[in-house]
């Protein structure tokens, strides 16, 4: 499979993504492109069959609601989209549960590895560790990194 994996199902992917991560609705066009690039890059190293399964699964999500709501997924209200995805997550069929788990994991990968998103969450891990916090004056003084005397209990 070459070229964009998500291109044929992009509208469904984005509709699922904003249901899985509501904040994704505020992403601009460039940010969406970046999210999709990350997802596709992750898929690129996986077997072609898995890439095809993802596209097929997104098509199933798009058309499955016709049976119940007489509308495609992308034309559903947010509430009905939630119900469709919850149905997949809690399905009695492992295939559906597994498929949805994989899809939402890819969406989380594309969204939560973004620097701006991680900053907005308050995630501040820094290579300088305690020193980085100390310079902001918010953390108690800590022993120098070289101090590693053993002790048994807190």
């Amino acid at each position: 499979m070459s070229g964009s994996i998500l291109l044929p199902v992009r509208a469904t992917f984005r509709a699922v993504a904003v249901t899985v991560v509501p904040e994704a609705s505020s992403l601009g066009p460039d940010a969406w492109t970046e999210v999709e690039r990350v997802v596709e890059q992750s898929l690129a190293s996986r077997p072609v069959t898995m890439q095809r399964q993802l596209v097929t699964f997104l098509r199933v999500i798009e058309y499955l609601p016709l049976l119940r709501y007489l509308r495609r997924f992308t034309r559903l209200s947010p509430e009905h989209r939630l119900q469709v995805l919850a149905g997949l997550q809690n399905s009695g069929q492992l295939l559906f549960r597994r498929g949805f788990w994989g899809l939402r994991t890819l969406i989380y990968l594309g969204y939560y590895t973004r620097d701006d998103v991680q900053s907005a969450l308050g995630y501040r891990a820094h290579r300088d560790g305690w020193s980085a916090r100390r310079t902001t004056g918010e953390v108690r003084a800590v022993a120098p990194p070289g101090d590693s005397s053993p002790h048994d209990a807190i």
């Binding site: 305690w130 590693s148 002790h151 807190i154």
Partner: peptide, 8 residues
């Protein structure tokens, strides 16, 4: 070794 308490 064990980390010193102050670094926990």
């Amino acid at each position: 070794h064990f980390l010193p308490r102050v670094l926990i």
